[in-house]
Design a binder for these strands. Sequence first.
DNA 1: CCTCTATGTTGACACTGCCCACATTGTAGT
DNA 2: ACTACAATGTGGGCAGTGTCAACATAGAGG
Lengths: 193, 193
Amino acid sequence: MPRRTYHHGNLRESLLKAAVRAIAELGPAAFTLREVARRAGVSHNAPYRHFQDKDALLSAVAAQGFRELTAGMMEAGARQGSALERLKDSGLAYVAFALRKPEHFTVMFDSPVCVSKDPEYVAASQEAFQTLVHFVRDCQEEGVLPADHSQERVLYAWSLVHGIAKLAVAGRLPFRTRAGMLKFAKFAIDESI
Amino acid sequence: MPRRTYHHGNLRESLLKAAVRAIAELGPAAFTLREVARRAGVSHNAPYRHFQDKDALLSAVAAQGFRELTAGMMEAGARQGSALERLKDSGLAYVAFALRKPEHFTVMFDSPVCVSKDPEYVAASQEAFQTLVHFVRDCQEEGVLPADHSQERVLYAWSLVHGIAKLAVAGRLPFRTRAGMLKFAKFAIDESI
DNA sequence: CCTCTATGTTGACACTGCCCACATTGTAGT
DNA sequence: ACTACAATGTGGGCAGTGTCAACATAGAGG
């Protein structure tokens, strides 16, 4: 069904949503500018009025993913509990996000987006990282984690949950259900401290 | 320079080598069947006599990467030292391989290869995994790791080094040199046990 | 020597990202 | 209100891709 007006009115948003859905349904590989345009009901060139190129659209998608990831970690870490429990819960939320939106997660960290210098993308990804920094700092201040090597401890926590998430998304963890994966993630996180 | 003979003689091997070099030089995204064929000095359709499609060639490249990874871990873990030191060294070798061949490493674990059912690929990747199993089992038998949750402990070790490797390759670790990354990897591995 | 089959080549098709020129529309200034 | 202009969307085109079908060549076995 074609549009009634020549101008779409809110094409940028529509393209973003269409891109997210296309990635989720067809996978990042089958992600195509022209397919996104089709889904948004515009010509194959309309996206270029809102995004410089394909990578720019992907970057925007990734940025939105990072904001959602940040929100998930914040929410998980905002519940009752000690600083250590909040850190663990935020790490679990990281893995849970990857399992909930595997293709989205893939776009966020894989080439070509991962080298993007798009300010929105950089800001969103740094915000997600800062969330982890926050929870680790809390643990250090409560004395449940050593106070030294602050940066390395954050990167250590990140590496662990990122590795679990990546292996899970790649289908390399021998668990069938999401619950099984998350149970293992909990085991690993508990074991790591 | 064109070939002198109509038949290449050893095209499959040549294609594999050309593919590995193309990936290393241009990145996995710019990897192209036609480009590989060009580098091997054959027509754009010749590869189809040796690989079913593009993904099959990528799978073969990935399989070779897994064999190299396995060899690196075996060598690192074959040196003197306790079982724990051998496990740690093999984990460091995992990260070192990813840093030495980041694009190759990417192909091995990312879509579309990661869902490949090519027997050579499956065998090579399982062999790499079994290497880790081996070193963890040694630690459990020496009593330096708890004897329970055998599978989970292997996956835990794998997740950690895989996460470090992935973040490093994605350019998300704030270290400038390979040595810096490896130093952090050593810190994280030490901390994890 | 002659056929058969494995291996390479050429040509084609649909598709992609991206560039151009053009069409349409909302808007700002008079 | 009218007009120039900027923003937004369209259509066509180009080089490049993966893959298929038809054809060419060369080694191997009878």
